[in-house]
């Protein structure tokens, strides 16, 4: 029963990892851009939430109403002003620029907020839990986080396959130059994709900040979790990122139970095992 409980907790954390991964996967899917600053943008969102909760005096979960549009607007501007200029046949410029962005965000946050660990206080919901009987219990917050993750991925899936915007994303991903013949301005399409990615990042950042301590330096580790979930799930598959996130979360939970020092290692080992057995991921979608 104890193990069942541990696996259950791992699954719920997996939802958070899936949200890290979904934004990363979306950007790569639409414009083949690997966003090295993704983890730092998650941390930035956490700080934006910190400022918003302090200024407005609201619950961090409620601050999403502000943080999501702020991050989405930032994403649009970032893509339009900076990243669009790096896109082309060469994959290296966007990598270098987002790497530089990662350094800038980390140091900017360090300058503004110091290296102190911070945490958002969500109140009673943090300690509330649901008893499932038989000694099993799940925290309300982790459960909410998981439900939100599933909802986010379902919403992205619906947006991609059922709306005109999703059609534009897929068409631009298929063939940029013909997409322009359809009247699509690919700079605008890319900026919308980045805005959407950072809206998801905002949600992930707030849950990260409520769940545990954060400081300006933790971004790159979140990036690794996101990458691992994307690769395990299979490139371009949104539901795959959820599966990848859950595998990572469960592996970390089991590792931590065996020895607290093994938490991260167990996640990486699970990743390597999946990579060795299915290099294309569990639910691959992108060809070429």
């Amino acid at each position: 029963m104890e193990w069942l409980n541990i696996i259950l907790q791992g699954v719920l954390v997996g939802g958070l990892y899936a949200m890290f991964a979904a934004g990363l996967s979306l950007i790569f899917g639409v414009m083949r851009l690997v966003n090295i600053a993704h983890g730092d943008l998650i941390v930035l969102a956490a700080y934006v939430a910190l400022v918003a909760t302090d200024a407005l005096g609201v619950n961090p979960l409620l601050s999403l109403v502000v943080v999501v549009p702020v991050m989405a607007a930032l994403g649009y501007a970032l893509q339009w002003l900076v990243l669009n200029r790096t896109l082309g046949d060469d994959l290296l410029p966007p990598l270098l620029v987002t790497f530089g962005l990662s350094v800038i965000i980390q140091n900017g946050l360090l300058e503004l907020f110091t290296a102190d660990s911070r945490k958002l206080q969500a109140g009673a919901i943090e300690t509330a839990s649901l008893h499932l009987g038989g000694g099993l219990a799940v925290g309300t917050l982790p459960l909410l986080q998981f439900v939100v993750a599933v909802a986010v991925i379902a919403a992205l899936q619906a947006l991609f396959y059922r709306t005109a915007l999703g059609r534009a994303f897929r068409a631009t991903s298929d063939d940029q130059s013909v997409a322009q013949l359809m009247g699509l301005d690919n700079r605008h399409v890319f900026a919308l994709a980045m805005a959407l990615s950072l809206a998801v990042v905002a949600i992930a950042g707030v849950f990260l900040a409520v769940r545990a301590n954060f400081d300006p330096s933790i971004g790159p580790a979140r990036l690794i979790f996101g990458f691992e979930a994307v690769i395990m799930g299979g490139l371009g598959s949104l539901w795959g990122t959820l599966a990848g996130g859950i595998i990572l979360g469960v592996a970390q939970a089991i590792g931590a139970q065996l020895d607290p020092g093994w938490q991260l290692l167990a996640g990486h080992i699970a990743f390597l095992i999946v990579l060795a057995l299915r290099p294309e991921g569990l639910f691959p979608k992108v060809q070429g």
Partner: peptide
């Protein structure tokens, strides 16, 4: 001005109807 490009260049991720709809998205 609309162009039917050489080699057709349809969007492989889109269905027939979606290809048509995206042509009319403006």
């Amino acid at each position: 001005i609309a162009l039917v490009p050489e080699g057709r260049r349809l969007f492989p991720s889109l269905s027939v109807e979606e290809n048509l709809k995206i042509g009319g998205q403006l």
